[in-house]
């Protein structure tokens, strides 16, 4: 590959410098701009990229299995949106297994756990009230589920976690309206059933189709008001 012409030689070095990241921003942009039209330069760049990639290799090592779980949980749309969306339009007793099971889990836990502090406001009087909302938050199979229900009449959220293990951290619940940034609904109890009032700033965002997600945060919740740790569970809100 020794090249007779000085210009080509110079270009080959430029390609090497680009592949190794040695150029400053201006030089880099100038070389990149030429790549589209200069076949020889593009070929040289490709060769040097391969060399650079080879140099970057270290000793191979399998990452811990939990790394894949964490990656999977952070993928967008890691939810049951299709299942829940199809259920959203039917009456609750006809709902598909996901929503029915979610409701059943909540009811079962409520009945087993007995009285809860503070009790939910009674909703029986509100015959015309908006239907309750529910979301099943899932991530990696076997890594836990949180079922969240939201009573729009009382403004209360119920969270029912199972199998969540985040010792030393807090689980923070977020609502993510389509196309917008997450709004905190507060830290939930990761090991037990919990009630909390939905925060005034975030409550209106809890609507059918919105995404709920749980991130792992420092104890007490995100210090920044935005998720700072990995999102481990997510799911879509549906009306029941």
């Amino acid at each position: 590959m020794s090249d007779p012409t000085p210009t080509r030689d110079e270009d080959d070095l430029l390609a090497a410098e680009l592949a190794f990241g040695l150029l400053d921003a201006n030089e880099r942009q100038a070389v990149e701009a030429r790549l589209a039209n200069d076949r020889t330069l593009a070929d040289a760049y490709r060769r040097w990229q391969d060399r650079a990639a080879t140099l970057a290799l270290g000793a191979e090592e399998n990452p811990r299995p939990s790394i894949w779980s964490a990656i999977e949980a952070r993928l967008p749309a890691n939810d049951m949106s299709r299942v829940v969306a199809s259920a959203a339009s039917v009456r609750w007793w006809q709902a598909s297994t996901a929503v029915a099971a979610a409701a059943a889990i909540v009811l079962a836990i409520v009945s087993v756990r007995g009285p809860l502090p503070p009790p939910p406001a009674p909703v029986i009087a509100h015959a015309q009230a908006a239907a309750p909302l529910v979301a099943v938050l899932t991530g990696t199979p076997g890594k836990g589920i949180v079922t969240v229900s939201y009573d729009r009449t009382s403004g209360r959220l119920l969270s029912a976690p199972t199998g969540i293990d985040i010792a030393g951290h807090s689980a923070e619940l977020w609502v993510i309206p389509a196309g917008q940034s997450p709004r905190s609904l507060g830290v939930i109890a990761a090991g037990s059933l919990g009630w909390m009032p939905a925060r005034a700033g975030a409550a209106p965002a809890i609507t059918p189709g919105a995404t709920l997600a749980i991130s792992v945060e420092p104890l007490g919740g995100s210090p920044t008001g935005k998720p700072t740790g990995p999102v481990i569970l997510s799911g879509k809100v549906a009306a029941v």
Binding site: A56, L57, G58, A59, E60, E61, N62, P63
Partner: peptide, 11 residues
């Protein structure tokens, strides 16, 4: 690819 790419990260 994860074993290879983890090697890159560790370096």
């Amino acid at each position: 690819t994860s074993a290879k790419l983890f090697g890159v990260c560790l370096r």
